[in-house]
Design a protein around this nucleic acid. Structure first.
Lengths: 154, 154
DNA sequence: CAAGTTATTGCAAACTTTAGCAGCAAGGAT
DNA sequence: ATCCTTGCTGCTAAAGTTTGCAATAACTTG
């Protein structure tokens, strides 16, 4: 759990950003609530317990930053607000997400296997791929063993 | 192109909803602009040309409805607004998006090439993939020919 | 085709997220 | 430890999206 903090500091420094008590506090809350899909407002309320003076805008900005750094991952459950989840596989952005449309759970896949696709994209479209975001929707093992329904979306 | 209209009417009836001139007008605009990733505001402006009295909230609600029915798909390009695209290939896997971090432009890739990855996911994780969302971030042809800068993120 | 039922609309207010700005604080250098 | 540069914060306003409600329009039934 301390690993994320150190890594966070290093990534910030590398990009010329600064570590602040607010950012620390927000990351702490996220780490303490690993596994929950907290919304921005929920994170704001939790952070306020220790830091009552923090501004909501700061929470929004920090979450954006953490998402950029891929320390957290923005989820879209179509419930009218942004929700985030801790991303345990830090600097390696080469992983994908499996989103179960039944239970809402999110798993991660280590395999990448997109190199050939990216080469083809460069060849056919002249587009240089620097990064990617891949989400697979379907049924996780548990749910598919129980009761498969119909497909869901982003 | 008329197929979508008939299909839309039938789906509405099946769910006990009603066809209205507003819904018709909004669907028409989307059909007429297939291939563009229109935002809610853009759709609103286009619809207003023929139906000046339509309310913005109606456009929001109708797009939500069309998204529920999977006649359109909501896209998240992180540009601060909802964008939608027509869903031509129902049940079919969809194309990928190339997002230029320099100019913000969005292209589409027709190739899929994810079957082998999805098989591997089923084998290793027991996860049944029904659909996927793939975004590639980088430099489009034009931007990379001009001035390649530094890497961008989601 | 008129009447009744009920979903839908437009408006406005509420809510969520982003942007601009002046003062503040973090990190590096002295 | 102090100064200095520059990013960061909190506030507020604006932009984007959703919700509540009374009036309206669409489908059903007779």
């Amino acid at each position: 759990m301390a690993g994320e903090n150190i890594q966070f500091r290093e990534q910030l420094k590398k990009k010329g950003y600064k570590m602040t008590t607010q950012r620390q506090a927000i990351l702490d809350v996220i780490l303490q609530h690993e596994g929950e899909h907290l919304s921005t407002e929920e994170i704001y309320e939790l952070v306020k317990k220790e830091h009552p003076d923090i501004g909501l805008a700061t929470v929004y900005r920090t979450l954006l930053l953490l998402d950029d750094m891929e320390l957290i991952y923005k989820l879209d459950f179509d419930d009218g607000c942004n929700r985030y989840e801790l991303n345990r596989h830090k600097d390696d952005h080469r992983h994908h997400h499996l989103i179960c449309t039944q239970c809402g759970g999110v798993e991660e896949v280590e395999e990448d296997l997109l190199e050939s696709l990216e080469e083809q994209i460069l060849k056919n479209y002249g587009f240089i791929v620097l990064n990617h975001r891949v989400k697979f929707y379907g049924y996780c093992k548990k749910c598919s063993e129980n009761s498969p329904k119909k497909a869901g979306q982003d």
